[in-house]
Design a protein around this nucleic acid. Structure first.
Lengths: 203, 203
DNA sequence: TTTGGTCTGGAGTAAATACTCTAAACGGTG
DNA sequence: CACCGTTTAGAGTATTTACTCCAGACCAAA
């Protein structure tokens, strides 16, 4: 019943399995990685893997939870001071860094959603919360005088959709182009963000 | 050795299998449709399916070829007259209609690319040709006085990327949101296109 | 009618893989 | 040490599925 039973001070097996799974998923696509391969790459047995995870999908869900956690950090508003331009930059960079770290998720999103009802719900919830948070951010930034507020609610909605679309799919888009995914490509994604945001930025 | 041996005037088995496969792929995702299911849904035997197609991937490739054909029609420039605004509208609508018709392709793109070297090459070729064609279209439209030309080559490149991204991934994006894919949602995709193009349109 | 290519059916197979089962090792506690 | 819940190994299985194989139907031409 202990909160986190660890026999040593080292990282637990469960987390280690997640790390290995993430690396393999990112490298070869989640569909082409078997649970046995994950176990083997982690130096564990299949049985052990299934002791820690009920099924394959639970692994994916846990990795998605990690990504959600990253986002929460990235999009946290500064405490005790008004937001400034550097916060926007930090959010942009952090967002893409997180997506890069968990890139298999958006690469394989339709398949993952299709295969797992629970994940589907978690994703939908996250997405809804993200949209709501985006509206709040816009309001904050407008209040702080950083941006012009969108012309209308509909305009804000459309802006959010477009930014969200870029965020989710820029990496898959580049990968589909066969180009190796360099730092420069990440920068281009951020550039697209800026381009779309530009009309709203106060100079 | 005859060009198209058809025992009757009806549609050939091969085309029929492709139609059925497309419907199933769109409905349930290409990964969740077995070759046997395709055959059965078409009222054919597995053996017959494999008489017409070397393997599963050849089916996908053929469907992609169809999509490419559709695009060629959609983006054909009018003959004997200068292009006008209605041509742009036709291209936008046609583009999304085609993507809708073959929506499984972009929904499952990363997986498909990963699984089939030949498809990967075909896709890369199509994409490169599409980008080149986009540049040509921009030039035509600028020449016809419909749009302001992009500020620079880099600007045009970025614009093309953004439009391409929206085109490819708007449908998967909406589907991921769990919303049923209505006509209205398609319209919103077109609206995003317009929004991005707006700064270039001559009023 | 015979011939020969094209097309079709359908049973069957080999391989892959998510997951199970059981025995045993471990490690903290009394 | 003895006990017991937690963790681990690893062989094994049930199932799925892409694909094969071959017998035979069809059809046009000779």
């Amino acid at each position: 019943m202990a909160e986190k039973p660890r026999k040593t001070g080292r990282q637990g097996t469960r987390e280690q399995l997640l790390d290995v799974a993430l690396a393999l998923f990112n490298e070869r696509g989640s569909a082409d990685v078997t649970t046995n391969q994950i176990a083997e790459a982690a130096g564990r047995s299949p049985g052990n893997l299934y002791y820690h995870f009920r099924d394959r999908e639970e692994i994916v869900r846990n990795l998605f939870s990690r990504l959600v956690g990253r986002w929460a950090e990235v999009y946290a508003l500064p405490e005790g001071r008004a937001p400034d331009l550097s916060d926007i930059e930090r959010m942009l960079a952090g967002n893409f860094a997180a997506l890069w770290e968990y890139r298999f998720i958006y690469r394989d999103l339709p398949t993952l959603l299709h295969r797992d009802e629970i994940f589907r719900r978690a994703y939908a919830e996250t997405r809804a919360a993200g949209f709501a948070n985006f509206r709040k951010l816009l309001a904050y930034f407008a209040e702080a005088g950083l941006i012009h507020p969108p012309a209308s609610g509909e305009d804000a909605e459309e802006l959010a959709s477009l930014l969200w679309l870029i965020g989710d799919y820029w990496l898959p888009f580049v990968e589909a182009g066969n180009d190796d995914l360099t730092k420069q490509k990440l920068e281009q994604g951020i550039a697209l963000f800026r381009r779309v945001l530009k009309p709203y930025l106060r100079t």
